[in-house]
Design a protein around this nucleic acid. Structure first.
Lengths: 222, 222, 222, 222
DNA sequence: CATGAATGAGGCTTCATTCAT
DNA sequence: AATGAATGAAGCCTCATTCAT
């Protein structure tokens, strides 16, 4: 009589009976709201998303957003600040970083389904604090922690350039969807270039670039 | 009399000076509205900008926006599509491209004064068509025209990656403002890296990267 | 089963003390809700008080208000009509009435703790019926019953003026808190004036006032 | 210049043609909104009045309230603070004060049409500052300025009691409308009593009351 | 050419209230 | 007996937009 469970068992083998069972309906609603919010904020930005939109996606009344999160703003902060997307990077060995980033972006055209927290923030320019939080987060993660692991000079600049590289590629591929990058066919090529670029910035010799690279000089060691 | 923004009528030769000065106020107003709109849309996004804001910047009534442009949406399209920012690139010799991009970004923290068309679109993501227009524009400019000038294989991917690189850097520097890139001190270093990266993607040998770049191999062609 | 109609409140012999203390929590909750409601309605008015506020004060769920009283409106009527504040007056000998009123008001700055029923109604003026009920109550209590005990002409006018006097003083003292009346220092003086005024209206000679009181004549009959 | 008073051409002969003619429609709307607001705030309190109600009374859209006053709160302050009702009192000779007050209240059952600012504040308990402003106003007007004109001791208490008396009577008559006071028949009697009461408090001998009033005597000046 | 008045839709938020447990 | 989830209506306010001058 009371099995409200099999709502959208989207995948397969939805935990036959070992499910935490009684998942209070509230929890489901809360999670669903956050999902919908993450999607809409990421896709349409803070201002372009109405609370009613979010609630509508979940199929509940907009008032629940206030019951569970207090305000639209609070909900936004909830879904836009727990990025942690880059945290695992700290445990990735340096020579696997290229792969890691590559993998991160490779699965990207899911952007449409679930946009980057970074993109969410970029698209929500009315939230000034959000961009501040993002800066803090990235600074701590890359400019500080990750750069500390890089050998050679200018580690901080290199670390940030690396993120810039990844971020830009991600945008072009997932959001703007320029044809060459968005196309699945070029997946291999694209990954190789990405990896190469990342490696250049990570390897200690990269610093040499800055020495030899004078006007117009391209980067070949010759 | 009070010029709100440093309008910077950069095009020169506007109003050959013999014009009765105060006369073509209609045209002046129109232009001023577009300037203000470009700034606000870029800085605060479409949803974060009200027609009254724009009119207020210029010091006229909001109704004028409708007289001149028909609607907020029309005004937005007007100022967000005639970017042409990248057009000059077509005339830049290949071996100066790195410099050109470098210069483009280097002056970047003007972002605050006049934001990237790309950022404008990102920040106005509730306008679905805008992103489409941007894609068309970039595709035409880079994936087609610029890529055609590149030798070697995978020209299109390389062209787009190049833009991604520049775009990402620009965002990190101007919008997110991570410390290493935003700091003026690192200006030189940053430019050298940027140039190096661009050159790698432009030079025909770059394509080789895709061949050699297997696991962990860094990118030095040597 | 549960007729929430049986009031049976302020009398004695409620719960002969042998009750298992924590037991009749239902009844306790009911009473607590009414207390909280009386306070909040009086202090913040009907519109300024939310059902959740009341329930929150008692520490129970807002739904209980509906279980016990049916609606916010019903609860309001419940607590705003059984005032009975003036009932004891009927048993007060005429020559003690001044004292009685004086005492009633003197302890007044308790207004903050528990506001006048009159104030409750004034502050809930969106409830039209409430003011009607108050009028009925006052009419019955003063214009009819109390006036009947007054000798001399114009008893009804005098009775109502007496209440007006007390009511006004109470408001100035407790609610508006003008300095001279609200200050504890003037307590004695204030009480004497109040008593004097009340006596004048009660004493049968008061009626003469209407005869003598033409221009400028002051009121001392003595 | 042109008094924008003749709104509510309730009577007849609405200024045939000598009207200031082109009275900018805005001014009319503004004034009408203030009138409607004064009425509704006074009758139903701040919380019991919706902006739409007010606009509806005037027959315009609610947005105009914001155009002209900025917010509901601002509108409330506008209509609730310009009392000045008591200001003329300062120029009234002492021996006419009774008449003045009498006249003030006598025309009272217009309360329904246009309630006292004092009542407005009393009925809007959610506006804490409003009651503060009222206290300031009354303190200044009565406790300070008016009391200064009274001879004899305890001038401040007497001044405030006088206002209390008037206020209470006004409430009973206009708002609660108890039968004896509200009835037009008793108008004369009521006025005489009122005048008498006022005179008692004004006349210097009034202070003597406190000496003689030993009925139930506490605290006689001894 | 330009303005200010006016509107209606929609956004965020609160609240009384009901349903299911 | 009591709770928490959920709802729909309404409130304040902003905004794009039109109308009349």
């Amino acid at each position: 009589m009371n099995e409200p469970k099999n709502d959208r068992t989207c995948g397969a083998a939805a935990t036959p009976d070992c499910t935490p069972a009684r998942k209070r309906s509230a929890e489901r609603t809360r999670t669903a709201l956050m999902s919908a919010a993450a999607f809409r904020f990421g896709r349409y930005g803070y201002d372009g998303t109405s609370v009613r939109d979010i609630a509508g996606d979940v199929g509940v009344d907009a008032a629940l957003v206030y019951r569970y999160f207090g305000s639209k703003e609070a909900l936004f902060e909830r879904v836009s600040s727990n990025s942690k997307v880059f945290e695992p990077l700290l445990d990735v060995p340096l020579d696997c970083v290229a792969d890691w980033f590559s993998a991160l972006i490779a699965g990207e055209p899911k952007d449409v389904d679930f946009p980057h927290p970074v993109l969410t923030v970029l698209r929500s320019s009315s939230r000034d604090e959000a961009i501040g939080r993002l800066r803090e987060e990235m600074t701590d993660m890359f400019t500080r922690q990750f750069a500390a692991r890089l050998e050679g000079p200018h580690a901080e600049v290199r670390a940030e350039l690396l993120v810039a590289w990844v971020l830009g590629t991600s945008l072009m591929r997932g959001t703007i969807q320029t044809p060459a990058l968005a196309s699945a066919e070029n997946q291999d090529v694209f990954e190789q270039f990405l990896r190469a670029g990342v490696d250049v910035l990570i390897s200690p010799e990269a610093a040499d670039l800055s020495r030899e690279a004078d006007r117009g000089g391209s980067a070949e060691t010759a």
